[in-house]
């Protein structure tokens, strides 16, 4: 590893652009939090690093584009993966026409459907974690994900997607969410009914939503 350029300092990790074995790569390092109990901190960073590396590879096998994991270092809580030279969805949504928006989120929905069908939940579906490159949509950041076929976990995944759209893209959230659901339904088929019922339940469970429990 010769040159390391910091490309992003997120809340949880630092991302560096590096050349690894001659390949254009990203090093993701989960950083120590001084405000957290050291035992808890190490536990969180280690489990998330290990889980993320596994889920990235497994998602790929399910046909969901993700970065390729090259190397993992649990001691330093680092992952090295391929660099995706695209743009985060978050940045391009404001300039999207409604039709494109619907199509794009239908694609997002079908990718999430593939994950769920394959027994994976992402755990942090926001538009910062979706990268578009030449018409191919990549999902990144699987650190909060899980291996599960559980209805509740799937429901939370969809709930978080909806909430992320409402808070960050409120002016177009309905269109985007409709697109998402149409793509998700294509993959999930009839299963979607139970999941959407659970999504509404989760929403009502939150503090203070009109409509009662």
């Amino acid at each position: 590893m010769e040159k390391m350029t910091l490309i992003k300092k997120g809340a949880e990790a630092e991302l560096y652009r590096i050349t690894w074995m001659g390949r254009d790569s990203v090093l993701k390092r989960r950083i120590k939090k001084v405000y957290r109990n050291p035992d808890l901190d190490l536990y969180i960073r280690t489990t998330r690093t290990s889980l993320e590396a596994k889920l990235l590879s497994e998602a790929r096998r399910l046909g969901v584009p993700t970065p390729i994991v090259y190397s993992i270092d649990l001691k330093n809580t680092e992952i090295i993966m391929s660099f995706i030279p695209g743009v985060p969805l978050k940045k391009i949504i404001p300039n999207m026409e409604r039709k494109t928006l619907h199509e794009t989120f239908s694609l997002v929905g079908s990718l999430v459907g593939r994950l769920h069908k394959g027994g994976i939940v992402h755990g942090d579906l926001t538009t910062s974690n979706m990268i578009l490159k030449d018409g191919v949509l990549f999902l990144i950041d699987f650190g909060l994900g899980d291996h599960t076929f559980d209805l509740e976990a799937r429901g939370v995944d969809i709930h978080l997607m909806r909430r992320a759209l409402e808070s960050s893209h409120h002016e177009v959230s309905k269109w985007a969410y409709d697109g998402f659901i149409s793509g998700y339904e294509k993959i999930m088929g009839d299963e979607i009914k139970d999941i959407l019922r659970r999504v509404n339940e989760i929403r009502r469970r939150g503090r203070y939503v009109e409509g009662g429990r």
Binding site: V156, R163, E166, S167, H170, E171, R205, G206, R207, Y208
Partner: peptide, 24 residues
């Protein structure tokens, strides 16, 4: 005791960026 909300103002309202899924 009743609320746990992370919020910021945007475009006419306080948007909810994070909250508790169950108890406060």
């Amino acid at each position: 005791g009743g609320n746990t909300i992370v919020s910021a103002y945007s475009d006419g309202r306080y948007r909810v960026f994070g909250e508790t899924l169950d108890i406060a």
